[in-house]
Structure formats: C-alpha cells, structure tokens
C-alpha cells in the first residue's frame, strides 16, 4: 500500500506540474467567498445555503471527473481505500494544489446497510485538509457560525458528483472546519453503494 500511495503522490505532482493551466488562487477564493455571501443574502437560511453549495458542487463534480480521467489516465480503483488515496493525492492535488491526509476506516462487521455487491459497502475515509484554498481570506461572523454554515460545502458536492459518475454513490459531509473554531478541517466520504451501469431515462 505504501508504494501505491507514493505512486499516486507522484502522479498527482506530475499532473499538477505539467498538465494544468494554473491561475491565481486568490481570484478563485474571492469569487467563491463573494458567491457564498450572495447566497446567504438570497436564501436567508444557512441550511439552504449549505444545500445549494453542495448541489453546485455536485454539478461541478459530474463534469470535473471527465477532466480528471483524461488528465490522469487512471483506471478503476480496486477498492474504496484506493479511491481515497486517488481522491486526495491525485484529485485534490491536480485541481486545488493541496494534498489532504487520508484516514481510512473499515466497515463494521455487522453491516447496517444491506451489502449489495461483492465489495463491502459502508467503507469510508476522512480527508483532513491542512489548508483550504477556498477559505483563504475567510472569517465567519457569529451569525453564520450559529446558523451552521459549512463554508466549503461545495467540496462535498464535488466529491459526490465525481464519484457518482464512476459508479459510486457516496455520502460526503464535513465533520469539522477550522473556520468554526475546530482543530482541523475534515470531510468524511462514506460509500453507500456501487451503482449499476444503467441507460439514462429516456435515452433510447
């Protein structure tokens, strides 16, 4: 595992160095921040803003995965553990130039969800973001903290959208965020099930 993990790191670094068109991260951070402020004003409800950010991320993820596959030329992952490694070391690296730390956790032996596939469902991993390009200049006001805003919730949506396009239904959510005064910024990604290849509705 250690070698593959290292290999992924090398792949991620290589894509970042040679196959990305780089831009100023501040432009990105400021644009995203201004968007979140606007959504708060429009929806007047932090839960709804979280939802909208996630939805927006989902839409991004469903497209971004193609870009990712084209650039990385990686094949199918053997298990969900490998997915975690690829997401952190290649995915995050090539798009956001950060490499979150991955912590894997195995599914509980007595599965609470019905196991539908040969692969064990219920596996999960936690991404710990040491730095967050989205939150570069951000300090949340008291009201947003109390309202339960997950400022970077777009990332959860991106993960869900991207993984769904490669037949994995996942649940991605923030566990903690330094913007909320937590020790670290963590996203948990939990595998719900592997999806069957299906013909889209109305696509004969």
């Amino acid at each position: 595992m250690a070698t593959t993990s290292k290999q992924y790191k090398a792949i991620g670094d290589d894509i970042w160095k040679s196959r990305t068109e780089k831009i100023n991260a501040e432009l990105f951070a400021l644009t995203y921040g201004a968007l979140v402020v606007q959504l708060i004003q429009d929806y007047e409800d932090y839960a709804e803003v979280n939802k909208q950010l996630e939805k927006m991320g989902y839409n991004i993820g469903t497209r971004l995965i193609e870009d990712f596959l084209a650039r990385s030329a990686l094949g199918r992952c053997a298990d969900f553990r490998e997915v975690g490694e690829v997401v952190a070391k290649v995915g995050f690296k090539s798009f956001l130039n950060i490499t979150p730390t991955v912590t894997h956790s195995q599914p509980q032996p007595s599965g609470s969800r019905p196991p539908s596939q040969a692969n064990p469902t219920g596996s999960s991993f936690i991404l710990t973001l040491d730095e967050n390009p989205l939150a570069e200049f951000v300090e949340l006001p008291e009201e947003a903290l109390e309202g339960g805003l997950w400022f970077s919730n777009v990332l959860c949506g991106v993960l869900r959208g991207a993984l769904e396009m490669v037949q994995m239904q996942v649940q991605a959510e923030f566990l903690s965020d330094v913007l909320k005064g937590d020790e670290s910024t963590q996203i948990q990604v939990r595998l719900l099930k592997y999806l069957e290849e299906e013909v889209p509705v109305g696509d004969d």
């Binding site: 990305t20 780089k22 831009i23 644009t31 839409n59 971004l64």
Partner: peptide
C-alpha cells in the same frame, strides 16, 4: 499560491446557474 485554471472555469459556470 496557484490552483488549476479549469477549477475556476467550472466554478464560474455553476456560479451563474446557482445565482
């Protein structure tokens, strides 16, 4: 500090739809 240019493109596209 740099990030990927395509990431900003994706953000801008969806930003318009979300707004």
């Amino acid at each position: 500090r740099l990030i990927d240019g395509a990431a900003l493109d994706y953000l801008t596209i969806e930003l318009v739809n979300t707004l």
